[in-house]
Amino acid sequence: EELDDIIVYYLELGDFNYADMAVTYGLKLHPNSLDIKIKKLEVLLEWEDYNTAKEMIDELKGSSMENTDFLVCYAKYYSNLGNPRKSIDICKKALELNEEENFLNNFIADEYVNLGDPFNALKHYQQALKEDPTDEYSLENAMICFSDLNKSEEAIAFLNDYLDNFAYSEVAWSEYGQYYFNRKNYEEAIKGFDYMLAINSSAVGVYASKAACYEALNQYKKAVEVYEEMLELEYTKAFTFYKIGLCYKALKQPTVALNYFQKSLREDPQFYMAMMEQSYLYEEMGGMPEALHFAREATLLNDGNLDYQKRLAFLFIDSGKFEESLSCLKKLVDAEPSRFYNWYAYTE
């Protein structure tokens, strides 16, 4: 049992070399142990040594078809080789042993996903959730299946029923908020995100989702308040400063917006999105040299962005720097040879 625990520890840690060393040592002490041989099979599958794994499966099949761990390895072998139907058949046989039902139903569901069958995948994710109602993986994937099946009414009914029984589930409230966000019911989405933040006030990503709802409702001041709460929790703040800047830009407060874009750049001097926004603001405020400077810096950092190349070309032309604009226009006609206006600008 101690050897088994050590092997399992290294397998869960993902340290397969040490797991193999423990298996080898275990087989020296107990050469006929089925449990240790099955752990050896797990290691072989992790190493993708399928020829040796098949030999071991053939050796163990006669004595281990009532062993759940073996059947999981057997199913994984076919899954890894791209045969999900065979994998599903083996998992269903394992389910007859009434062990690891949650894991096995998730395994089967994942294989149905690989087959492009969200209907059957959903049934098994829901079954997995019955076996372990706290399984976040099953819940998230069940919602994905509902989405793939375009069953929005069934999805929210399922989610509400789940929340009636597990009102403190962070994942469920996050899914609730996201469900309504995707349907542009931002007020209801905010309710879901607020419930989740009441459960876990340090969930940084939820603040961003809540702020995005306020932005969609054009309630930019409330969005700024949420982003400011978010700043207190973040280690890297560049993107949040940038988002606050966009809110103030929408509120027609360019000076305040510019200040936040500058804060964003102090946090991350290579954040080209903040650079380009500064370029737009300087242009609005009549500062064309500054607009050109920040557009050039942003484009250097994101050379493949055609919108940036077009803007930079325009600013060069506006400044009378026609030679400099040619490098941008050349990239545009190379990337979009069928667009008339690229050639027209290049010709001019």
Rank of each mutant, 00 (worst) to 15 (best):
D110C: 11
N106A: 04
Y125L: 02
Q126K: 13
L129F: 12
L122R: 13
Q126D: 04
A128N: 11
S138C: 04
C145G: 05
P133T: 13
N98P: 09
Y112R: 07
L139T: 00
G116D: 13
L149T: 03
F119T: 06
P118N: 12
Y125R: 10
P118L: 10
D110S: 15
N98V: 14
E100A: 09
E131Q: 10
N150M: 08
M143G: 03
N114L: 13
Q127A: 03
E136T: 05
Q127V: 01
E140R: 12
E136W: 04
E140W: 03
A142N: 03
D135N: 12
E100I: 01
D110N: 15
D135S: 07
A121M: 05
A121E: 12
A109V: 08
N106I: 09
N106G: 10
E100R: 10
Q127T: 04
E101H: 06
F119W: 07
L122S: 09
F146A: 08
F146Y: 08
P133Y: 04
C145E: 01
M143P: 04
N106E: 05
N105P: 10
S138T: 07
N150L: 14
S147C: 14
L122H: 12
D135E: 15
K123Q: 10
F103S: 08
N141M: 03
A109I: 14
M143Y: 01
N114F: 02
I108E: 11
F146R: 08
F107I: 00
D135A: 01
D132R: 08
L122P: 11
G116R: 08
N98W: 11
E111K: 15
L97M: 09
E136V: 02
D148L: 14
K123Y: 12
A109E: 01
Q127G: 00
E131V: 09
S138A: 15
L149G: 09
E140L: 11
N98G: 06
E100L: 05
N106H: 01
